[in-house]
Amino acid sequence: QAGLDVAPRLFYLLSLIVGAVIGLVVLVAGVPWYVSLMAGVAGALGLPRWILKFLVRRRQQIFLNDFADAIDIIVRGLKSGLPINDAMKVISTETPPPVGPEFLEIVEGQRLGISIDQGIERMFERMPLAEVNFLGIVMNIQSKTGGNLAEALNNLSKVLRDRKKMKAKIRSMSQEAKASAGIIGSLPFFIMGTLTVLNPAYLNPLWDTTIGNILVIGSGVWMLTGILVMRKMINFDF
């Protein structure tokens, strides 16, 4: 889904290496070993997966930006008399990644006896988006009931563009809340950095005493909980 040719075993190995490096860096900084251990575990379980999810979301966003145009290419090809297979070949060669390679998988699958419906199902596994599912539904209904495929795909293209406009509108309306969440989330780090510069010894009890370590861990957990709650409140699934 992220477009990476990386085996799961290699990904887990890289996650362990990242966790070990983070834990070692924290330990060298003078933090107690159990805090370093928790930092290493959090780094191994969190950072690589966060990067992977970021790459998946970025690839999906690029896909959505070009997907409606790809449907329009199919519509124009069908109206000009081209078979849908040839229209998909045009998409696979003329459309930039990731849309082009995804349709190329469908075209190459047809050479192996895989139908278009099955190819779109496999595309949905690699690109689990509602828009791809809509295309699969339209193609499945058309193959079973017949009808004007060009008109059906043209209507689908309009729906996809309307969804894109609605997503952009929702994103713009939620920017203020996201900015507020970013300010609130960064404020403790800003205050801690300022105190460290003005009076470096002021925060030493947080790192040198057991009670201070417990307070740091507890504050981090509560802060993470608050960030996740705010993130859930300002993110809209559409």
Results as ranks from 00 to 15, higher is better:
Glu94Tyr: 07
Gly19Asp: 08
Asn133Ser: 12
Tyr12Ile: 12
Lys79Asp: 10
Ala2Glu: 11
Ile84Leu: 05
Gly81Thr: 07
Lys167Thr: 14
Arg49Pro: 06
Ile71Glu: 01
Val6Arg: 08
Ser172Val: 13
Glu94Trp: 04
Ile217Tyr: 01
Pro128Ser: 03
Ala44Val: 10
Leu52Val: 09
Glu151Trp: 01
Val26Arg: 00
Gly81Val: 05
Leu198Ser: 11
Met192Cys: 13
Gly100Gln: 10
Ala150Phe: 05
Lys158Met: 09
Lys144Pro: 00
Pro128Phe: 01
Phe124Lys: 09
Leu224Arg: 05
Arg59Phe: 08
Ser172Tyr: 09
Leu203Asp: 05
Val31Ala: 09
Phe238Ser: 11
Thr145Ser: 00
Ile91Val: 15
Thr95Pro: 01
Thr145Glu: 00
Tyr202Phe: 14
Val159Met: 07
Asp162His: 14
Gly119Leu: 01
Glu176Tyr: 12
Ala42Tyr: 04
Ile114Thr: 03
Leu37Thr: 04
Pro205Ser: 10
Ile73Lys: 09
Gly113Gln: 10
Phe63Cys: 04
Arg231Lys: 13
Ala201Trp: 00
Ser157Cys: 06
Leu215Tyr: 03
Phe190Pro: 01
Ile120Gln: 00
Ile214Leu: 15
Leu203Gln: 10
Ile141Tyr: 02
Met173Phe: 12
Met192Glu: 03
Ala201Gly: 13
Gly193Ser: 12
Ala181Gly: 14
Leu13Thr: 13
Met223Glu: 02
Ile84Lys: 00
Ile217Ala: 05
Val221Trp: 04
Asn204Leu: 08
